[in-house]
């Protein structure tokens, strides 16, 4: 059976042009390594969401007022900050030795001008606060597949040397892993040592084991590295 060729591609968009450049930049920035880290989050009421054994204990800048400020969050155990693009707390958090990730939101239906303006704001924040360690894209509403990948690629090209971090809880494991081919170099989420069989009450468990996290990175062509407490990194 011989299949006939069809008409040429009718649009100018090329997913691979977008991805190749971003992937190459990520590989160059981190020498082919990619990272995973177990994380928990501090809620405005002071309660932690996630395992107490998590390496990264994050607080969002928007919740600091309710918590009594950065120092109070530190006392509760926070060692990382998700700062907004205004970056009011970023410099102080860097000064305290906390890991700072710059949150940049995106929505599937927004205009390219709106998106560009936000990425410009990100670039400005990163210039202004040198210690920012990574970029943390945050979808507004339901994340769409290819739109998310394109946004990650744009973030990588905006900040080529910073970590570009995937929130597995927001994006899910599948889309999260695809981001690793579009400029991301780190995944963050509930990562456990072991998981029970996917039966009964565990059937819908979204927890990722360390081995599965490493597999996500390895299957994307990276050398997996786990972030450990005290800033250490273990190459797996």
């Amino acid at each position: 059976m011989k299949l006939e060729a069809n008409e040429a591609n009718e649009s100018n968009f090329d997913l691979f042009d977008v991805g190749r450049e971003a992937l190459a930049a990520a590989r160059t920035a981190f020498a082919g390594n990619a990272f995973f880290v177990s994380a928990r989050r501090l809620q405005p009421d002071g309660v932690w969401l996630g395992s107490p054994e998590a390496t990264l204990a994050l607080v969002e800048e928007g919740t600091l007022a309710a918590l009594g400020g950065l120092a109070a969050a530190r006392k509760l155990g926070a060692n990382g900050v998700l700062c907004d693009l205004a970056g009011g707390v970023a410099g102080e958090a860097v000064g305290l030795g906390m890991r700072v990730l710059a949150c940049v939101s995106f929505a599937a239906e927004e205009s390219s001008d709106t998106r560009r303006a936000r990425l410009d704001q990100l670039a400005e924040l990163v210039r202004r606060v040198p210690g920012i360690d990574g970029v943390f894209p945050v979808p507004v509403g339901e994340a769409q597949g290819l739109d998310t990948l394109q946004f990650f690629a744009a973030c990588r090209m905006t900040c080529p040397t910073l970590h570009l971090v995937v929130d597995l809880e927001r994006l899910g494991q599948k889309l999260g892993q695809l981001c690793l081919s579009f400029g991301a170099d780190e995944v963050l989420g509930a990562i456990t040592k072991q998981r029970a069989l996917r039966l009964g009450e565990h059937a819908a468990s979204n927890a990722l084991t360390r081995d599965e996290a490493a597999l996500l990175l390895r299957a994307s062509g990276f050398t997996p590295c786990e972030r450990l407490p005290e800033g250490e990194v273990q190459v797996l």
Partner: peptide
């Protein structure tokens, strides 16, 4: 059920 599902890359 003790096996991981194929990843998106796979």
């Amino acid at each position: 059920g003790d096996r991981p599902a194929p990843t998106a890359a796979e």
